[in-house]
Nucleic acid binder design. Structure first.
Length: 413
DNA sequence: TCTGGGGTCCTAGGACCC
DNA sequence: TCTGGGGTCCTAGGACCC
């Protein structure tokens, strides 16, 4: 999709059209640009640029927070359109997909014709622009679609993949970022053609397994890369995480623990939505100097309960936070998943069952009244555990309690 | 410039087991 | 007693993607 977030925002507010628009947050906030309109890009604004820098480059731009729900909704709509063209659709991200069109020629005609129909269908049904790359591998199709932007279609005929790639900068290869680019430049490789001309053994010696994959990519092959394999639905996630960067760094323990509890609830909720239980909980801390640590703990049995995630992550915080240092970011991640359904019934005791029911009731309230509707009574001096033990069936977060901090979405009860 | 948030994959070392 | 080899699991960090 072209300038996806900005384009969706324009559907809701047509006055934005043709203007310099930056999605990602306010101009003076900590954060980076998620998407910039083509007008804003003229001033050098691009995604991943710090918002404060974007403001300096383009002070007249309209800065908006963005609406992730809207992007997910439109992502779902385009997915449905794609599915009318082929059953083999894989959403690679919210605004990017691969379609395996093998064997659809009788239905949709030759590749360029099919792509044109697809382009029209997306435009007609969503009013959004997209760009399409057509090729014999995902790698080349992706690069072709980049080259086709904005709002274009580009086909790389079978057999000319390497010739198409040769003049492009190595940075265009997905997987080659700042670091690899620099390393390649150091040995005199600037274009994909240079890479293709290089001896595979040399690349392997210098970059290991990754070098071998790189050699394949230079020829336009998917093999050895992460999108090696069939195009199809993505399975369950391998990790679920949330993190938060403070507006100003903090060393207030109560505040850190309150934020952590809130993050753990969000992670717990998503585990339950996916029907997953996690064995490993990871804490992440970023200090003021931007140095970042992660500390993990693996439990004997998996969980999808907020209370377990809160306790695990809090223990990690207490054991690993260097209290002399101010914290910029705190985050938590759950991984090491088991299918939750299998666990249930087998291991579930009375406590676990009551918690699961209470949490699913809370999840339903959040569905109806929004994310801030309910929260576990955590960060209130750590007394929730005792209250729970007095009355295990109590709905978590029912009592308003005192506001411990001003973390996002922290409700009044 | 002053650096988000949600992910994936890879590497490397250590513990532990047979 | 001066020290194998293979495998798995866990942890920490880092590159990279959108």
């Amino acid at each position: 999709m072209d300038a996806f977030f900005v384009s969706v925002e324009e559907l809701y507010d047509p006055a934005l059209k043709g203007k310099a628009v930056v999605v990602g947050g306010k101009a003076n906030e900590r954060g980076v640009v998620s998407a910039a309109s083509y007008e804003a890009r003229k001033f050098g604004v691009h995604s991943a640029l710090p918002l404060r820098t974007a403001y300096k480059l383009c002070p007249h731009a309209i800065f908006i927070e963005g609406h992730p729900e809207r992007y997910r909704e439109y992502s779902g709509r385009v997915y449905e359109i794609f599915r009318q063209f082929t059953p083999a659709v894989e959403m690679a991200s919210v605004d990017e997909a691969y379609l395996d069109m093998t064997g659809t020629e009788r239905l949709h005609g030759p590749p360029l014709r099919a792509a044109h129909l697809l382009h029209e269908a997306v435009k007609a049904q969503t009013q959004l622009n997209c760009s399409i790359g057509i090729a014999t591998s995902r790698l080349v199709a992706k690069i072709a679609s980049d080259q086709a932007k904005p709002n274009g279609i580009l086909r790389v005929l079978p057999g000319v993949e390497a010739r198409f790639l040769a003049p492009l900068e190595v940075r265009k290869v997905p997987g080659v970022g700042k670091v690899t680019e620099k390393q390649l430049h150091e040995i005199g490789i600037r274009r994909i053609g240079d890479l293709a001309a290089l001896d595979e053994k040399l690349l392997e010696a210098r970059f290991g397994k990754w070098g071998l994959a790189l050699a394949g990519k230079a020829q336009g092959l998917d093999a050895g890369s992460w999108f090696d394999g069939e195009i199809g639905e993505r399975g369950d996630p391998k990790s679920i995480s949330h993190e938060h960067t403070y507006g100003e760094d903090t060393k207030d323990q109560a505040r850190l623990e309150a934020t952590l509890a809130h993050l753990a609830e969000k992670v717990g909720r998503r585990l339950r939505e996916h029907g997953l239980s996690a064995r490993t909980v990871q804490l992440k801390l970023r200090y003021t100097d931007f140095s970042t640590i992660t500390r993990a703990h693996t439990m004997a049995s998996p969980t999808q309960l907020d209370i377990d995630l809160i306790e695990e992550s809090r223990a990690l915080l207490r054991a690993n936070w260097d209290t002399r240092r101010t914290v910029r970011l705190i985050g938590m991640q759950a991984s090491g998943f088991d299918d939750a359904q299998e666990q249930m019934g087998l291991l579930e005791d009375g406590r676990t069952e009551r918690w699961r029911k209470a949490l699913s009731a809370a999840d339903k309230l959040r569905d109806r009244f929004g994310e801030g509707a309910v929260a576990l009574g955590s960060g209130m001096g750590g007394h929730y555990r005792e209250r729970v033990q007095e009355n295990p069936a109590a709905l978590p977060g029912k009592e308003p309690g005192k506001e411990p901090g001003k973390e996002p979405g922290k409700p009044g009860g």
